[in-house]
Structures are given as C-alpha cells and as structure tokens.
Amino acid sequence: MPYAVVLYFNKPSEKFIRDIWSNLSENGIPSEIHHVGIRPHITLAIYDELTCQPCDSELSRFAPQTAHLHLDCTHLGVFTQPEKVLFLAPTPTRELIDFHAHIHSLLDHQTRGPWELYQPGQWVPHCTLALDLDQVKLDQAMSVCGNIELPVKLHATQIGVVEFLPVTEMVHFDLKEI
C-alpha cells in the first residue's frame, strides 16, 4: 500500500474544511475524501514504499525545529486527470515550496516509488474538497463553493504519514509554534 506525507491543520482550519465537506454532501455532492477517515490536509508526497522507522525518526527531529505554516488559500482549482477533483489552493510561497522540497530531500533514502505529481517542480499544493466527480457534480460543487470568501487563511501545525487505502495514520508530529 502507498504512503502519503501530509500537512495537517489546527482545529479552526480543520473545522473550516470539514464544514465545506459537509456543505457539499448536504447539497448532493458526495465525496470519498470525508468518508475515508483522513483529516483535512495537504499532501506533500506519496510513495509506493516507505521505511517507517527511519522516516519516523527523521520527521520527529524535523518537526519541532520547523515553524507552523500560515497559508493563504487564494483560489479554488480543479484537476481534470485522471479524475475531476475540486480543491482549495494555497498560494505557493517560497516558504511552502522550500518546506515541500526539504521533506522530499529528508525522506529520499527511506522511500521507493515516489509519485511524480508530488515531486518538487511538479507539485500543485492543494487541499481536496471533493473528488471523483463527473462534470455535473463538478459544476454543482463549484456552485456551492463559489460562496467561499477568499482568501482563506489556513494554519498547518502538524506533519504526518498515512498509509492508504484504507487510510491508517502511522504518525504525526507537531510543528514548532512561534
């Protein structure tokens, strides 16, 4: 099973995303994202294989030395391939891009089979709102989410690793509060 390295949010940011997930569901737009058991997040990397103990050690040392990330989500976006996915996108600041690249560098020797879309230079930072949508559901989801007042500030406070599917959280570590 593959592994994802993810950024988790503080409680208010997480609630904001969960409220969007609920609003979409209440408007007839089911999304697997809130049924698979993963918290709202931004995926930093996905690997086919990950050696857990060295990875855990690296992340446990990295997290308390690395400050929370304050993200300004300035737009909604859509991936169209291989499936339609609606997402909330943070502005890709130098801080976020460097954080992402550092994670890949840090875990390089503990992983195999990195997914190309999450590699530095390819990655589009995003928080998934709805996935596996047909065109009608995508149009409805865009209509529902069109009421989100942008920009939205999200506060990333933890880094974690999950195995999927089914989703199993392996570890998470708090980033340093400044």
Rank of each mutant, 00 (worst) to 15 (best):
residue 31 S to V: 03
residue 31 S to N: 11
residue 31 S to R: 01
residue 32 E to L: 14
residue 34 H to P: 15
residue 34 H to T: 08
residue 35 H to G: 08
residue 35 H to L: 14
residue 38 I to D: 12
residue 39 R to D: 14
residue 39 R to K: 11
residue 39 R to M: 08
residue 42 I to F: 12
residue 43 T to C: 14
residue 43 T to I: 12
residue 45 A to G: 06
residue 47 Y to K: 04
residue 53 Q to M: 07
residue 55 C to Y: 02
residue 55 C to W: 05
residue 56 D to Y: 07
residue 57 S to Q: 09
residue 57 S to P: 00
residue 58 E to Y: 12
residue 59 L to I: 01
residue 61 R to F: 10
residue 61 R to V: 12
residue 61 R to K: 12
residue 62 F to D: 10
residue 63 A to R: 01
residue 64 P to D: 02
residue 64 P to W: 09
residue 70 H to F: 09
residue 70 H to R: 06
residue 73 C to K: 09
residue 73 C to G: 01
residue 74 T to D: 15
residue 75 H to K: 14
residue 76 L to Q: 07
residue 78 V to K: 06
residue 78 V to C: 02
residue 79 F to N: 05
residue 81 Q to P: 00
residue 84 K to H: 01
residue 86 L to I: 00
residue 88 L to R: 02
residue 90 P to Y: 00
residue 91 T to S: 11
residue 92 P to D: 10
residue 93 T to E: 07
residue 95 E to L: 05
residue 96 L to G: 09
residue 98 D to F: 01
residue 99 F to E: 12
residue 99 F to H: 10
residue 99 F to Q: 13
residue 101 A to K: 12
residue 103 I to H: 10
residue 104 H to K: 06
residue 105 S to D: 12
residue 106 L to A: 07
residue 106 L to E: 08
residue 107 L to Q: 05
residue 109 H to I: 07
residue 109 H to W: 12
residue 110 Q to R: 11
residue 110 Q to C: 15
residue 111 T to A: 07
residue 111 T to D: 02
residue 111 T to C: 04
residue 112 R to Q: 15
residue 114 P to M: 00
residue 116 E to W: 09
residue 116 E to H: 09
residue 117 L to N: 05
residue 118 Y to A: 04
residue 119 Q to F: 02
residue 120 P to S: 09
residue 120 P to W: 04
residue 121 G to A: 13
residue 124 V to K: 14
residue 124 V to F: 15
residue 127 C to A: 07
residue 127 C to G: 08
residue 128 T to A: 00
residue 129 L to W: 02
residue 131 L to K: 03
residue 131 L to E: 08
residue 132 D to S: 11
residue 138 L to A: 09
residue 139 D to G: 13
residue 141 A to K: 04
residue 141 A to H: 01
residue 143 S to T: 13
residue 143 S to R: 13
residue 144 V to K: 06
residue 144 V to G: 00
residue 146 G to M: 02
residue 147 N to L: 07
residue 148 I to P: 07
residue 149 E to A: 10
residue 150 L to E: 15
residue 151 P to K: 13
residue 152 V to R: 07
residue 153 K to W: 10
residue 154 L to F: 05
residue 156 A to S: 01
residue 157 T to I: 06
residue 158 Q to E: 02
residue 159 I to C: 00
residue 161 V to F: 02
residue 161 V to G: 02
residue 161 V to P: 03
residue 164 F to C: 04
residue 165 L to P: 00
residue 166 P to L: 02
residue 166 P to V: 06
residue 167 V to L: 08
residue 168 T to D: 08
residue 169 E to R: 04
